[in-house]
Simulated scan of single mutants.
Amino acid sequence: MSASPETLGGTRVHATAIIDPTAQIGRDVEIGPWAIVGPHCEVGDGARIGARATLERNVRLGQRVSVGSGAILGGDPQDLKFRGEETWVEIGDDTAIREYVTINRGTAHSVTTRVGRHCFLMSYVHLAHDCQLGDHIIISNGTQLAGHVQIEDRAIISGLCAVHQFVRVGRHSFIGGCSRVTQDVPPYVRAVGNPIKLFGLNSVGLQRSGFAEPVVRELKKAYRFCFRSDLNLSQGVERARGELEQIPEVQHFLAFIEASQRGVGF
Rank of each mutant, 00 (worst) to 15 (best):
S4W: 08
T7Y: 05
G9C: 12
T11N: 09
A15I: 12
T16M: 04
D20W: 01
G26V: 00
D28N: 15
G32Y: 03
P39A: 15
V43I: 10
V43A: 07
A51D: 14
R52Y: 14
R57Q: 06
V67P: 06
P77W: 03
D79K: 07
D93N: 12
D94G: 07
T102G: 11
N104M: 13
G106K: 03
T107V: 04
R114Q: 14
V115E: 01
C119V: 01
F120K: 11
S123T: 12
V125P: 05
L127A: 09
L127I: 06
D135E: 01
I137V: 07
I137E: 00
I138W: 00
N141V: 01
Q150F: 07
R154W: 03
C161M: 10
F166W: 10
F166I: 11
H172Y: 15
F174C: 03
F174H: 12
Q183T: 05
V189K: 00
G193A: 11
N194W: 04
L198G: 12
V204L: 13
V204H: 05
L206V: 10
G210R: 05
G210I: 05
P214Q: 12
E218P: 04
A222F: 04
C226H: 06
F227K: 07
F227T: 05
D230N: 08
N232T: 02
N232C: 03
N232M: 01
S234Q: 14
V237G: 14
R241N: 10
Q251N: 05
F253M: 02
A259I: 02
G265C: 09
